Simulated assay, not measured.
Amino acid sequence: MLLFVSCARAEPTEIAWMRVDRDDGLRLSAQVRFQLAPVIEDALSKGIPMVFVAEALVLRDRWYWYDKEVATATRYMRLTHQPLTRRWRLQVSSSALVGQGGAALGQTFDTQEEALAAVQRISSWRIASEDEIEPDGRHYVTLRFRLDVSQLPRPFQIGVVGQPEWSIAASRTVRVGPEGAR
């Protein structure tokens, strides 16, 4: 019986693959793998939105000092379930999704699996412009992905502290060589 309970634990969050291309700057593509804990699925089914944050940090290698921060980009993804219509809604924005204000790209899905697949897939996200990247410089990109519990309703924020079920976070770094180097 104990063996069954230990096998029922959720897989850890990971960035399964990540690629950075030089195309009018830097474009990031990645696949994040995670499973929602039952408490998160329960909160979502009751209409409580979950906000996922992807942060990309571009640094330039410097041998004589600390690496120089060249660019940062942030993507906020708010996933909500609409119980009356039984549809899932995903809003994506480059600024924090507080309340109902701000500009965001919205998309609806029929199933939770489809909505989560869209959250877990980052495709050709422009994280740095061409003028921020030196053609002959060596850069590296760090991607951090997490569930932002600070954007949950206040009663949930208090109950979430110290509970591992609410911890969805992963990080990965890749090097980007000079332009023309493959």
Rank of each mutant, 00 (worst) to 15 (best):
A128L: 10
F52A: 03
Q151M: 11
V119M: 10
A16Y: 00
Y76R: 03
L90S: 05
I122S: 05
T85F: 06
M18K: 03
S45C: 03
W166L: 14
R87G: 02
R60L: 15
W17D: 07
S29E: 11
W63R: 15
Y140I: 14
G162M: 08
S29A: 11
A43Q: 01
Q35V: 10
R138D: 01
V92C: 13
E69V: 13
E132M: 15
D23N: 03
A103Q: 14
G101V: 08
D110R: 07
R78A: 01
Q82D: 08
S95L: 07
Y76F: 15
A170Y: 04
M77L: 08
V51D: 12
G137D: 02
D23I: 07
S93R: 06
R182C: 11
R121H: 04
G99K: 09
S171F: 06
I122K: 00
L59Q: 13
I15S: 04
L79M: 12
R22V: 05
I168C: 04
A54L: 06
I48S: 08
F52C: 08
A73G: 07
Q120A: 13
S6N: 02
R182E: 14
E130A: 13
R33G: 00
H81E: 01
L28M: 07
P38G: 06
P153D: 15
L2Y: 01
Q100V: 00
D24E: 10
T173R: 15
V92A: 09
E11S: 07
E134R: 15
S129H: 14
F52Y: 13
A71Y: 05
A169Q: 10
A169P: 00
R175W: 14
Q107E: 14
G47N: 03
V174W: 09
G177E: 09
V119T: 10
F52Q: 08
W125V: 03
E179C: 04
C7S: 03
T111F: 05
A16I: 05
P49T: 09
G99H: 05
S94Y: 00
V53F: 03
V160M: 02
D42H: 12
V176R: 05
M18Y: 11
Q157N: 02
F52G: 12
D23Q: 05
F156M: 08
Q100W: 07
T72I: 08
V161L: 12
S6V: 12
G137W: 04
T13L: 13
A128D: 11
D21R: 15
C7G: 00
L3N: 04
V149L: 14
D136W: 13
S45P: 00
T13K: 01
A16C: 03
V174H: 00
D24V: 10
I133V: 15
G137V: 07
F4A: 09
Q120T: 03
S167M: 12
R144H: 11
Q31W: 12
S167W: 01
F156A: 02
S129E: 14
R33V: 12
E165Q: 15
R19A: 12
A56D: 09
S94W: 00
W88A: 02
F145R: 07
G102P: 08
L79A: 04
V58I: 11
S29L: 10
Y140T: 05
E114T: 12
I168R: 01
I168Q: 01
W17Q: 13
L44V: 11
G47P: 09
V119I: 14
G101S: 13
